[in-house]
Design a protein around this nucleic acid. Structure first.
Lengths: 217, 217
DNA sequence: TCGACACAATCAAACGATTGATTTAATATA
DNA sequence: TATATTAAATCAATCGTTTGATTGTGTCGA
């Protein structure tokens, strides 16, 4: 056994390079579609380094999940206090979250690898998803539910609210998940900044419409 | 060369069994994660049958795509005439489509394999997606855009309309794509009929809200 | 200051197992 | 018999992993 949680020596560069390489390749080609040789070559490391640092290919996969969770919790961290002080503040938080997530998903170059990897792991429904769900998805969803409740005057943890937040996140995520389909249909080659702006505007319009509809019930 | 396009003999049972088996396994484990031995064993056929009937593993993959496209176009076929005669009729068509798709995606047992396979192929963005997109995604999306235009009085093929339809489909699809996540958060074990009803109600509410918001612009 | 040793890290090479594909023979149908 | 299909055996290639040797670095007693 090796692998202390923190860095004792200069093994970090290799570790990080392997994780970065694996994240990229797993996301693009899938776990089974990526060979350990490919990963180590891209990382500029030796094949044996995977077994040495992570115990094997599966260990590297888990490490990728942990790395994502660690990074995203840092990104998603915003000193937000629930419950929200006012209705306007709750709405503004929802708007800001949509905008930030949309830009990250649609324009961020780094997001490509992370998202592809996560989507595969969600579909797989394995131990990697467990970690990602508990450390980032669930806390973030709870936070958004609190905002939704504050914005509509409904119970933040009611089934209806939880589903409504999923529907909001869903239309947002689909613009990234269905990217190949959307690019074809929109006759775009890539998603430019102005395209992302247009999508964000649409999402905000839908948000306000959905909030109004949810408040009336 | 092998590969008879039609059935001269009783080769159909083997063909269909192989496609069904491959669809199931490709969807669950991915293309690279599934071996030809596994496919043929599940189909009750010999390994060589894959090469004989489809030319190889890749050919079987393409055949799966074609089989899906063929089946779905039959399912999605509804003698709908565009442009729609009235605004109400257009709205009703959108409602019916949402309801039918949601029930198929959330409750249909057969949908599981098909959807998982398709999602992987969308992410892969290869030749299989080409076929599926042209024969079912694009025509269906055009039809929904026509309905959306009829319901809001806007241009059916404007960028805004096309994106709005995607956002509608997106929140619908996410309830299937993000199923593992949603089940965790909702503390459900599976999606029951009553759960699907609740989701459909929410989606319809969001639809009307989005239509109203789109009409005002 | 020094050689001797310990230890983490990396390397090239090779391991057995499994992959998709192919070949050859047997079987069923008409 | 002629043809279409299935079955068993085998192929080279690639898979993830393991091996034994080597490197660089820090720690010791003398």
């Amino acid at each position: 056994m090796t692998q202390p949680t923190s860095s004792k020596q200069k093994s970090e560069p290799t570790r990080e390079a392997l994780i970065s390489s694996a994240l990229h390749l797993f996301g693009r080609q899938g776990f089974d579609g990526t060979s350990t040789r490919e990963i180590s070559a891209r990382a500029g490391a030796n094949i044996a380094a995977i077994a040495y640092h992570f115990g094997g290919k599966d260990g590297l996969r888990l490490a990728c999940g942990k790395a994502i969770a660690a990074q995203m919790t840092k990104v998603l961290q915003n000193g937000v206090k629930t419950p929200f002080a006012s209705k306007d503040q709750a709405i503004r938080h929802l708007e800001n979250t949509i905008e930030a997530m949309a830009r990250f998903l649609l324009l961020g170059a780094r997001a490509e690898d992370i998202l592809s990897f996560m989507l595969r792991e969600i579909n797989e429904d394995g131990p990697v998803l467990d970690g990602i769900y508990q450390t980032m998805i669930e806390p973030k969803h709870r936070e958004l539910c609190a905002a939704w409740g504050g914005a509509t005057g409904t119970d933040p943890e009611s089934e209806d609210t939880r589903l409504a937040v999923f529907s909001m996140i869903g239309q947002l995520l689909y613009f990234r998940i269905g990217k190949p389909v959307i690019l074809r249909r929109m006759e775009w080659e890539t998603i430019q900044r102005q395209d992302a702006d247009r999508i964000v505007r649409l999402l905000k319009r839908n948000l306000h419409a959905a909030l109004a509809a949810a408040s009336e019930e």
